[in-house]
Design a protein around this nucleic acid. Structure first.
Lengths: 212, 212
DNA sequence: GTCTATACAAGGATAGAC
DNA sequence: GTCTATCCTTGTATAGAC
């Protein structure tokens, strides 16, 4: 959800719904930065502009609040990536489909400052039962990457000398590192996406080695 | 430090020194998995095979113990990377120096299961004063990467169309993702290092696109 | 709806037995 | 040296005022 979409959505909400959404957004932000265990309700409350105790008017427990924030973040990113692929014309090659997905993923990671499907940092810390409930959604997203990668290997558009699952991990984790890049190098979203995709696709190699 | 070196070192220690080293190693392992805030002394104690209270015979506080573990991890990895470059013959090109460093870094990350200089997950959580004390060592390591990258850009062995600092971040963070790869795809250290370096250097691109 | 005050649990730290 | 028992602090959760 972009800032604009979010504002439009907020305008249609009752005050209560808007506050609830604000808390969820605050939770997403804090979670992405600190991971589940380190996330303090006091930090979420501060980010949302209220006192810790007030959160309990909207949510029954920390777990309930966190699970809703996490699940929402996962679904939004997954949905965006899938949509970007579905929007391609039928004649698009497997490679075009994969790199469109990568671009959409990188873009989503930059636009949504908060949680993401591959945000392992949070995921590993979760209580076991919550992890179980979130698993199907995460696995669906993972399957999408597997399909895209395998098809692009078969079409010859990406390398076949590396295990497809490793390629899948490389794509997802490399995209994820963007959140660690300092603001100074993340200029516009379009440019940052461009640089990252170029590095993933073509690597570090420069002119002096390319002739080989 | 490899397992063998560690064993040899242990053999020369007094029992007290050996116990102390065992605690540090346990702390490194727990820290790498969970980050500072989430690290419980009870977890370190369990990993070292003792009760929580017993740790205080060797260390004055959680901070003291953690700082020693972190500082040690940073220094060992930095030292190994620097040594790998220094060991090259004088005629080595800038590109050879950079990729030797990358290989050494990836190898070190695989061999030492614990903390590392770029292990941001831990670093960001640290108390401010501790972070200040560790900073010089981290910056020295960062400078090494900057020098290697800039030289390789100038020699034309790596691409010049991307900000050198971004290339530096890409190298370090991409190497770091290895700790998230499941055991199933991390076969031998030599093979895993090889795959990772190939992906970083040449990217995902496959035969069908290379002709362009 | 949101705040303040407080009960309760968990983890860091200390003391004293052995 | 290591253990067990206990204190102190921090964070989750509840209660009741406004």
């Amino acid at each position: 959800m972009t800032a604009t979409e979010s504002d439009e959505a907020t305008a249609r909400m009752s005050k209560s719904e808007a506050t609830r959404a604000r808390i969820i957004a605050a939770a997403g932000k804090v979670l992405a930065e600190t991971g589940y265990q380190h996330t303090r309700l006091s930090a979420i409350a501060a980010e949302a502009g209220m006192q810790t105790g007030s959160l309990y008017y909207y949510f029954g427990s920390k777990e309930e609040l966190v699970e809703e924030a996490l699940d929402g973040g996962v679904r939004v990113v997954h949905q965006r990536v899938r949509q970007s692929v579905d929007d391609l014309p039928g004649r698009a090659t497997a490679g075009e489909r994969l790199f469109t997905a990568v671009r959409a993923f990188v873009k989503a990671r930059l636009e949504i400052g908060s949680v993401s499907p591959a945000h392992i940092r949070s995921y590993r810390d979760l209580p076991k039962d919550m992890r179980e409930r979130l698993r199907p959604e995460l696995e669906a997203f993972s399957s999408l990457w597997d399909e895209l990668v395998v098809a692009a290997v078969e079409s010859g558009e990406i390398r076949h000398d590396v295990d497809p699952f490793v390629l899948h991990l490389f794509v997802v984790h490399t995209s994820e590192q963007l959140i660690k890049w300092p603001d100074s190098v993340r200029t516009s979203i379009a440019h940052t996406t461009d640089v990252m995709v170029r590095l993933m696709l073509n690597g570090l190699e420069g002119p002096a080695l390319k002739k080989g």
